[in-house]
Amino acid sequence: MDSWYWHIIFPLSRWLHIVGTTLLVGGTLFYELIVPVAIEDLKEEQQLTVFNRARWAFRSVVWISICMLVASGSVSLWRLWGGYHDLFIQSRWWALAHVAVGSLAMLIAILLIIRRQPPTHPIGWMRLNLVLLLTAILLAGIARHVRLTIREELRRSPNELSSVNW
């Protein structure tokens, strides 16, 4: 993994994962918190028009960010797969929980935009999705922290280092 191209691919993939997350989380928050405040003075009919047009414009953003998240997440998972079965086994469950919660959030996002008509309670679904997305970020942070802690402990005990493929 020391070839020059991995030093481009891995940071790029991490960046794409962050950008995909920001578009999805920020977009969801924007729907839940900002749009209702912005259009509260409009008539109900106009509010529905704004909501539907925003939903239509947001559709491509959701698809693009989900593609980015799945592709970059797969690259990271592939990079760490060996470690999750060996050194970083303790962080594996956190990483799997991150994948599961993140996948559920992406599925809800797709279900919200795929139909022609919006769901019955769009704000409620958005709120649930926002909580799931923030939980997925937290789980990723915990998985990373556990991994780095194990690595740091191994670094301090050189006897165990000979078998580690860095």
Binding site: V19, T21, T22, L23, L24, V25, G26, T28, L29
Partner: peptide, 8 residues
């Protein structure tokens, strides 16, 4: 995420 998504 909130900042970038909101600006976007």
């Amino acid at each position: 995420a909130v900042l970038i998504g909101g600006v976007f």
